[in-house]
Amino acid sequence: MTNIVGISACPAGLAHTPMAAKALEKAGEELGYHVKMEQQGSMGPVNVINQDEADTADFVLIASDQKITGMERFKNKKILRVDINVCIKAPKAVLKKCVSTVEGA
């Protein structure tokens, strides 16, 4: 199964961070991908991705234009950055596009 990890973050860290995370995880379920999104918002890190999960992921999806912490976990990983609003608006399309980009590479 395609295994995706990612991080969402937005300016205030209140609303769009959890929305993008949930939208992507839900879209993943519907598409048959395993998706785990860490939220770097007001509450501090939520649903943290550990090193093992980082290592076994097919790629990393960063849903943010903000500064992300803990990127060293993803050394040597393929990292894709996507606008957080697009992730909320069209999460399935985002996942499909990311998967085809990575597979095509």
Binding site: L14, A15, P18, M19, K22, S42, M43, I88
Partner: peptide
């Protein structure tokens, strides 16, 4: 409070 706001945001999905 932050958790409630987060829940509200995701409820809107």
């Amino acid at each position: 409070h932050l958790k409630m706001l987060s829940n509200l945001a995701t409820a809107l999905l």
